[in-house]
Computed example of a mutant assay.
Amino acid sequence: MPRAGLNQQIVVREAARLADEVGYDKLTLAALANRLGVALPSLYKHVKGADALAQKLSALVTAEIADEMTTAAAGRSGDDALRAVADAYRSYARRHPGRFPAGQRVPDSADPAHVAAGARAVGVVYAILSGYGIGGDAAVDGVRMFRAAVHGFVSLEAAGDFGLPREVDRSFDRMVAALGVAFRSWPGPEETGAE
C-alpha cells in the first residue's frame, strides 16, 4: 500500500533532493524508498522504474533551469542577458550538483511538460541571439555554441576537471565575454558561403 499523501511529484522532488545529497550516480530506487520510508515496491505506484524516475527527474531539472534562465534574462538584452543567463545556468549546477546531470536527457516526446520546458530553455537563448541580430538557421548554430560552451564549462567544473592554477571564475568570465564577441561579430550567410 503506498504511503498516504505520497504522489509522483513528491517522489520526484525527493529524488532530486536525495541526488543533491548523495550524487546522481548513487540515486537508486532502493535509496529513495528508504528515504521516503516506504517499501521499494510502493514506489512503483508512482514511477514505473529507474528509467521512468530518471525521465521525470530530467523533466523537473529542465523546468527548473528554464525558469532560472527566463528570470535571469528578463529585462535584459545583448551581453547583459548573455552574462545573466550563463551565470544562472552555472549557479543552478553549483546549487544542485546531484540533480543537474539528470537534465542532460533529451525531452521525452510523450511528456508534454518536459518538451515545453526544453523549448523554454532553448527559447531564452534564441531570444538572446535575436538581440544580436542572429536568427533563422544561424540561430541554431548559436544555440549549439552557447550550450556547448556554457554546459561544457559547467560540467567540466562540476567534475573537478579544471586543475590548472588559474581562478576558474575568471576563465568562465572570459569565455562568456568571448561568446558575446562572437555573437556581435556573427558572420552573415555571404561570409560563410551558406545560403
Rank of each mutant, 00 (worst) to 15 (best):
P2Y: 04
Q8C: 04
V11R: 02
V12P: 05
E14A: 14
E14N: 04
A16D: 04
L18P: 01
D20M: 07
V22Y: 04
V22C: 09
G23C: 13
K26Q: 14
K26C: 09
T28M: 06
L32Q: 00
A33F: 08
A33L: 09
N34I: 07
A39R: 12
P41W: 03
P41F: 02
Y44M: 07
V47N: 00
V47W: 00
K48F: 11
G49T: 13
A52H: 13
A54K: 02
Q55I: 14
K56F: 10
L57N: 01
L57K: 00
T62L: 04
E64M: 04
A72E: 11
A73H: 08
S77R: 14
D80P: 07
R83Y: 09
A84C: 11
A84I: 03
A86E: 02
D87A: 13
D87V: 13
A88S: 02
S91D: 12
S91Q: 13
Y92R: 05
Y92S: 03
A93G: 06
H96L: 06
P97W: 07
R99S: 01
F100I: 06
P101E: 10
G103Y: 01
V106E: 00
P107C: 00
S109G: 04
H114S: 03
V115N: 00
A116C: 07
A117N: 07
G118T: 02
G118H: 05
G118Q: 02
A121H: 06
G123M: 05
A127K: 15
I128E: 03
S130Q: 12
Y132T: 04
Y132N: 13
G136V: 13
D137E: 12
R144G: 14
M145S: 06
M145T: 12
L156C: 10
L156Y: 10
G160S: 04
L164W: 12
D169G: 15
R170L: 11
S171K: 09
F172A: 11
M175W: 08
M175G: 05
A177Y: 01
A177C: 14
G180E: 02
G180L: 02
A182C: 13
S185V: 11
S185K: 00
P187Q: 13
P187N: 13
P187I: 14
G188Y: 15
E195K: 06
E195M: 00
